[in-house]
Amino acid sequence: MAKKTKKSVEKFSFNYDIAESIVNYARKVSEEGLTKGTWGNISVRDGGYIYITPSGFPYDKLTPKHIIVVDNEGRKVYGELTPSSELPLHIEIYEKRADVHAIIHTHPVYSTIVSVTLKEIPPIVEDAVMILGERLFVSEYALPGTEELARNAIKALGNNHCVFLRNHGLVTVGENLQEALIATLVAEKTAQIYIEALRVGKVSILPDEHAKLLREKYLKSYRQK
């Protein structure tokens, strides 16, 4: 196993463009107010490697050289800093979802409210159903940074593009960082709509068959490659 690790390190070539894109999206996440301080994390999968933000590092000071790279088993192959404590979550999602190449974890207000009050958000608005999934679930609680949290998250995520982490925050996924960020923004908007709608009165739910058709349309033909 040690020889395999050494070989992996020798063949690795740091992709500056990927690291720079993570930095740019980290700044967008901060500018959108989707997280505070050093909370949250972002990653991109490139072949057998995962580029991920460092633990406890402020986004406004982040540069490409600060991005950490690990292999699929979490062994560091590039970087001097410690990778995000939620690395197990990222590894688990990439292992179970071959379609996912980017992950964004944030702590937006309304999504976090959902994570502490609800079990799911039903299909209420068409863009959320198309981009995120028919029903959006809250995972079972587990301590941050643990394998248990990672397992709970992937179970609740299923084939969706977002999952609310119980008493924690939001995780969104995508084919790339742009899709993952759009998913984050739509998830937070949907959480706000649902919470406010519950205060007003009875919430109108889309028929299940319509929700299924909308989701399939997005996955099969709506997204631009």
Rank of each mutant, 00 (worst) to 15 (best):
K3A: 10
K3E: 15
T5M: 09
K7T: 13
S8N: 14
E10R: 13
F12M: 08
S13L: 05
D17N: 12
A19D: 05
S21C: 00
Y25N: 10
A26E: 07
R27W: 07
K28S: 10
V29W: 08
S30E: 13
E31A: 14
K36G: 07
T38R: 05
I42G: 04
I42N: 04
S43F: 06
V44E: 08
R45I: 00
R45W: 09
D46N: 15
G47Y: 12
G47Q: 04
G47P: 09
I50V: 15
I50R: 09
I52W: 01
T53E: 06
T53C: 10
P54M: 07
F57H: 13
F57N: 02
Y59P: 02
I67A: 08
I67N: 01
I68L: 05
I68S: 06
N72M: 15
G74Q: 03
K76H: 00
K76Q: 15
V77P: 02
L81R: 09
T82Y: 06
P83Q: 12
S84E: 11
L89D: 02
L89T: 11
E92D: 07
Y94F: 14
Y94P: 03
E95K: 15
R97L: 07
H101Y: 12
I103Q: 11
H105N: 13
H107R: 05
V109M: 12
V109S: 14
Y110P: 00
Y110W: 13
T112M: 03
T112F: 03
V114Y: 05
V116N: 03
T117E: 04
I121D: 06
V125N: 14
D127H: 11
V129P: 08
V129D: 08
I131T: 08
R135M: 03
V138Y: 06
S139E: 00
S139D: 09
P144Q: 04
T146W: 01
E148F: 03
E148G: 01
L149R: 00
N152L: 02
A153K: 05
I154S: 13
K155H: 09
H161N: 15
C162I: 12
V163C: 02
R166P: 00
N167H: 13
H168G: 06
N176S: 11
I182V: 14
A183E: 03
T184D: 11
A187Q: 06
E188R: 05
T190Y: 00
Q192I: 00
Q192N: 10
Y194M: 11
Y194D: 02
I195D: 04
I195G: 01
I195A: 07
L198E: 14
R199I: 09
R199H: 01
S204Q: 12
I205G: 09
I205S: 08
L206D: 06
P207E: 14
E209L: 10
L213T: 11
L213R: 12
R215P: 04
E216H: 06
Y218H: 12
K220C: 05
S221T: 12
Y222F: 15
R223V: 11
